[in-house]
Structure formats: C-alpha cells, structure tokens
C-alpha cells in the first residue's frame, strides 16, 4: 500500500489529471507524477509557463538552445499533436508513452514512419531521406560525397521500396523494420521504466501539495 490514496492524489493546475493520463497510457499514476517533475524542469528552463516550447525542447535534448536540428524539430512537431507550437503535459505523457518499453510495437512503427515522413504525405520519399542524411552529415561533421549518398539511397530503396515506385509506404515500412529490427531501438526508452526512481521528488511534492491545499 502506498502512502496516498487515489482521492488524495495531486492535481496539476492547468494540466490534465494524472489518473486520467495513467488510464490512457502504460504509465502508473506515480509514473505520471514523476513525469510531471521532468516536465516542470523542461517547461521552466526558458519561460516558466507550464508549456514546453521548441527552444526548451532543444535545450533539454542538447543542453544548448542555439542548436537547431531537423530531427529534434520533427519529434517536437509529433509531440505537439494539437499544432499549438508548444507541448502541454498531456501531449508530453501521451507521446512519451509510445517510447515506453511496454507500448505496442505497432505504435512504435507508426510513430517512426511519421517521423521520417517529413512532409506528412503518407510516404517516405527519396528526397526526404536524402534531406535527413544531409542533416545528419551536417550534425556529425562527417563528409560524404554526393555519389556516396546516392549509393546509400539506392541500396536503401532497393531494400525498402518493394514496389519500386520511388517512395516507401506504410506497409513497406512495416516490412522493412521487421527485417531490420535495430531501426526500432530509438523507439524505446528504458528510462521510462524507472521514471519514479529517476525523479523521486514527485513523492515529496505530492505531500507538500496535500498540506498546502
């Protein structure tokens, strides 16, 4: 038995109820509360407004707010499901839920497809993959000749684009990742299993809030 019964659970003013968020996700109520500690820390890093801006998201990822990054931008846009330009706590918990070790594999595959479908056409196109490869090269300061990039793209599309129409559809992607399971590694965050241990202060804050209210 824990110290707190569900009716005494903390409410997050202006944010979705942790019990409701837990019911929609693989997280327990305590884990949602622990995620709130992480959310508070990220959402107050530039402006303490209870929302995560793109700048705050990049700061949390890179510890450097100046670092623009195509992939971080894309992840931010997928977290920001309501397209408000900011991530609220509900968005944050529901998006991280996909990365939970217990989340359905299909949800991970679906999220990864959206991630690489930069312009949301329902297909991963060759020019999108080339754009991502060039962004990666800029990020890592690795240099590859254009011919080498084209060889990598040729190889990838021969393997993934089964009907050879120059773009990868959802079914081709599902098939491709099932043959290349290592591509799904980025879709699971083992940290999420231990979130209450990483942010134990959620218990302390719960107690303080109960006394304060």
């Amino acid at each position: 038995m824990g110290c707190f019964s569900s009716k005494h659970r903390r409410q997050f003013p202006g944010h979705e109820d942790p019990v409701s968020l837990a019911s929609q996700t693989a997280f327990t109520v305590s884990e949602v509360e622990a995620l709130f500690e992480l959310f508070k820390s990220i959402s107050s890093s530039v402006i303490d407004d209870g929302l995560i801006s793109k700048e705050e998201f990049q700061l949390a990822l890179f510890k450097n707010r100046k670092k623009e990054n195509l992939f971080a931008n894309r992840i931010f846009d997928l977290f920001d499901v309501k397209h408000k330009g900011v991530i609220d706590f509900g968005d944050f918990v529901r998006a991280l839920n996909v990365f939970h070790p217990n989340a359905p594999h299909e949800d991970k595959v679906d999220f990864s497809f959206k991630l690489y479908d930069l312009d949301s056409t329902g297909f991963i196109e060759r020019q999108e993959v080339k754009q991502m490869l060039i962004a990666l090269l800029c990020e890592s300061e690795m240099k590859l000749a254009d011919e080498t990039i084209e060889i990598i793209l040729d190889k990838t599309f021969v393997d993934a684009d089964v009907n050879q129409d120059g773009k990868i559809d959802k079914e081709e992607w599902q098939n491709f990742v099932s043959r290349n399971p290592s591509l799904m590694k980025i879709m699971t965050l083992p940290y999420l299993r231990d979130i209450t241990t990483t942010f134990p202060s959620f218990v302390f804050n719960s107690e303080v809030d109960e006394i304060a209210t």
């Binding site: 990666l136 890592s140 793209l153 290349n180 590694k185």
Partner: peptide, 24 residues
C-alpha cells in the same frame, strides 16, 4: 557508411536520442 542503410545512419542522430531528456 556505404554498407549501412540510410535509416541506420539517420537513427544515430543526437536529435533522435530522447534519452538525453532524462539526463539531469
């Protein structure tokens, strides 16, 4: 890198490494 498929390379981007969100 020529031996790797494009997505294997892309998935090494730091921007896709969300574990850094949890590093205090």
């Amino acid at each position: 890198p020529v031996l790797m498929n494009a997505f294997e390379l892309i998935s090494t981007s730091q921007g896709l490494n969300l574990s850094s969100l949890f590093e205090k």
